[in-house]
């Protein structure tokens, strides 16, 4: 039995290479938030000048569960309006009321300690952040292991 069309065997590795490159590109291009929440009512009440956004790389946001914990953790601070987490690169987009909280205060709030079995730990640490999508990242630390990882 003869095939209708004969294919050069080299097509196979070519298809694999192209497919995997396209899949990687697709994943980077169409990022889907792992978890998102927003306080629409509060967003409407905030004046346009005070509504600010920050993008943070937060170590400790690794899955849906930690994303929810992070949102609860951050919502304990006032002025947080929206949170979107992306676990593929551990980034978080936060919308906040600039009149109630600044980026530095937000980072301090994220990095606050918690006591576990008498030991003080930082469940989340900010690796770097930027205040707009086009601004440069401000790097705070480079080691991507959290204190919780070390336990």
């Amino acid at each position: 039995m003869k095939p209708k069309i004969i294919i050069n065997p080299l097509i196979l590795p070519l298809v694999i290479a192209v497919t995997f490159s396209a899949a990687s590109y697709f994943a980077w291009f169409f990022r889907v938030p792992t978890y998102s929440e927003s306080n629409e009512k509060a967003i409407k009440e905030v004046s346009a000048g005070n509504f600010k956004t920050a993008e943070l790389e937060v170590n400790g946001v690794v899955c849906l569960g930690t994303s929810k914990t992070f949102a609860k953790w951050l919502n304990e601070s006032s002025g947080i309006l929206s949170i979107e987490t992306f676990t593929s690169d551990r980034t978080v987009k936060v919308g906040y009321d600039g009149s109630k909280i600044s980026a530095d205060e937000m980072i301090m709030s994220i990095e606050r300690e918690v006591s576990v079995d008498g030991e003080k730990l930082k469940p989340f640490s900010v690796m770097r952040y930027r205040e707009t999508a086009n601004s440069d990242w401000i790097v705070l630390r480079t080691n991507k292991k959290t204190e919780v990882d070390e336990l």
Binding site: A23, F26, A27, C63, L64, T87, S88
Partner: peptide, 15 residues
């Protein structure tokens, strides 16, 4: 996306 799975795993699966 449950647990540690994200869009990367799904796009690779499609591939």
């Amino acid at each position: 996306f449950p647990c540690a799975v994200n869009e990367f795993n799904y796009s690779i699966l499609i591939g």
